[in-house]
Design a protein around this nucleic acid. Structure first.
Lengths: 210, 210
DNA sequence: CGGGGCGTACGCCTTTAGACCTAAATCTAC
DNA sequence: GTAGATTTAGGTCTAAAGGCGTACGCCCCG
């Protein structure tokens, strides 16, 4: 216990950050060494503070969790990352795990279990929520959402704001025909039947703010 | 300081509850006397524990925050309610305030401000986030979403799951024509142009889970 | 330099959505 | 018990959405 586990807390909600900090600091073997509110700040803080474990929320404004994960890997930061989020969509879960997360727990874990998860991850284990493990096992297939081209993402973002094809066309300076082509491609790739389902998908995966 | 403010924390996320509890207990003049994970439990706990202030999240599974608020009022529970949530939609904010909330803050407040808010509310003040105050001042009009009939809400919930009119019809045992009538009414009442916008609205207001 | 993915765009066709109108049965409230 | 809201359902019509096929210029990668 001479060396407490150094934790960096990353979440865009101050209340959640402070809450996690307050709770984790009660653990004798865990010390919260810093907080960050977005991906960029997280990478910077991790470089400076060299935490053992990064507690990372995936949904954040600006640079999101997956980007932060990639940033850490690129810098060869040895911190182990425990993702804590509420997303269950394969399209958001799988990239996070593949980007090198050492653990994935849902936000509804109770705090003692969270502390245990931090210890497990620090000990070198990979800790996955059962649902996530199942996804990994079953879904060898690439998550559909990840295969959208940049342009398709732009179109989907517009659709997810409730825009009609015509409005999307004007917003992106395209012909309506082209928008329809993109929308069709999006529907096929996401495996959904219509634009409403696509919009809901986009919201669920955090492509646009709820 | 002989009488600390007795607070009941209501939120469906254990991490948030524990976090709030841990932080608030650090305040000399605040004591967290209990927690609840949904509206029913909140009302029951408030009856038993007689807290001075209830910290209430609006978005919860089962009985939601507004229902809990109404439940407390019906029982003439003297607890003052501080709503803490992330919703900015008028349709969700206004009913909460009108149901008797003594305060309304967004979830991105920093913890010291939250503690101050609890003290203000306990002192008898009504504390509103500036945006909420503006809504109240400007929007004398009833929030559109609140005027949906029960049946219309059911239909909207189906639409917000990405169902087509035909599928909604089968699910609710109606003719497709009736569904279209309901959908048209919903669109008019919500002031939106199509089912996709209605679905997004439903998600934002917590009618269905994101 | 030849594929392959990407972005753009058109045409034809069918299905779906949604507006507007009417109207009956039911229920609730005063 | 009558007025008003709710739920149900139909008709007609127009606009929007979406499937399917085709095509062409680009750029990158082997």
């Amino acid at each position: 216990m001479a060396e407490p586990i150094r934790v960096l807390v990353v979440d865009d909600h101050p209340v959640v950050r402070q809450g996690l900090r307050a709770f984790l600091d009660l653990q004798a073997d865990i010390t919260v060494v810093g907080e960050a509110a977005d991906g960029d700040a997280a990478v910077a803080a991790a470089e400076e503070l060299r935490p053992d474990v990064v507690l990372l929320d995936l949904r954040m404004p600006g640079t999101d969790g997956v980007d932060a994960l990639r940033g850490l890997r690129e810098r060869h930061n040895p911190a182990r990352v425990l993702v804590i989020t509420s997303f269950t969509e394969p399209a958001i879960v799988l990239p996070a795990v593949r980007a090198g997360a050492a653990g994935y727990v849902y936000k509804d874990v109770d705090p003692p279990a969270l502390a245990a998860a931090i210890r497990s991850v620090h000990a070198g284990h990979v800790l996955l929520h059962p649902d996530v493990a199942r996804l990994l096992a079953a879904g060898e297939a690439e998550p559909d959402g990840a295969r959208l081209t940049p342009r398709e993402r732009e179109v989907l973002a517009e659709v997810a704001r409730g825009r009609s094809n015509r409005e999307v066309a004007r917003a992106l300076r395209l012909s309506e025909k082209t928008v329809k082509t993109h929308v069709s491609a999006i529907l096929t790739k996401l495996g959904v039947q219509d634009r409403t389902q696509a919009a809901l998908y986009a919201v669920r995966t955090g492509l646009v703010d709820a």
